[in-house]
Amino acid sequence: MWAYIARRLLLIPLTLLGITLIVFALTRLVPGGPLERALMEIQMGGHSKGVSTSPLSEEQLSGLKTYYGLDQPWPVAYGHWILKIMQGDLGESQRYNDPVWDMVIARLPISLFYGLTAMILTYGICVPLGILKAMKPHGWLDKGSSIMIFLGYALPNYVLGSFLLVVFAGYLDWFPLGGFISDDFETLTFWKKIQDLIHHSILPLCCYLVGSFAFVTLLIRNTLIEQLAADFMRTAIAKGLSFKQAVWRHGLRNALVPLATDFGQNLTLVLSGSFLIETLFDIDGFGLLGYNAILDRDYPIVMGILFLSALLFLLGNLISDLLLAWVDPRVRFQ
């Protein structure tokens, strides 16, 4: 097993190299980079005094290219980037002039808060709900909750978000209209801080949960129903176990196997965030950072986030695999 893990770990840098190389090349080869963006901003900005509209000289253009790090051929630039990465340096944002690391770390509390809370709520609610639904399939609880779940699932989360915002934050005024915390957060007592955080997070959390909620609940429900019909369940009952005992001791563990296959991906929640939800609720998270970086052609940020999320994704895969092997002894490492 250790040899397997070692092999998988060795593959990670290679995969990362491949992914980043492709994206790096794309950022250079696709028309409309940071230089064009800067040119457009000036040239389309109209004839304000102090700004010349005559074409830039070659020298000036190459000066700007140097500023935006476009002066070298892309393979060379990629080489420099990789060397920096190996020293733990993600580079610096071209537009904010802040180190990408600092920008990532500044957003960690937000993504960790929403990611962990959403994860705990998802598993904490969906697993029991899925079990209840599976034990009495087609009962009122199963049918009722399925309607709710599918209704939520069918609504795109930003549509739901707009609705929640207008009704619960605007009309009813139960919740604040966005933001991660209040402006006076620092001055609050500990309990008030927690209260403030919860108050701000309920609506966005609803949006974050609504998608995975349906997925996890139905995954648990359906696999459990499948497991309940399995032969070993009958064996367990024939042994003298009650139905409930059989479900808890035998059915559930088997039903959790598919959940384990992507549990490791929870690692990526460190960098998670939806740009739509973050836009709607004015949360300064990774979704917005990544989306804006692409619009801004701020490639150091794009590459930095890509690198980190690919790394987490690959590690998450490995963890998923190990976890799967742990819950399902039939899985072998080759």
Binding site: I42, K49, G50, V51, S52, T53, S54, L56, S57, Q60, G63, L64, Y67
Partner: peptide
């Protein structure tokens, strides 16, 4: 890093 400004002031 704003050649447009450089140009304006030198041209005008």
């Amino acid at each position: 890093q704003a050649p447009w400004y450089n140009n304006w002031y030198t041209e005008t």
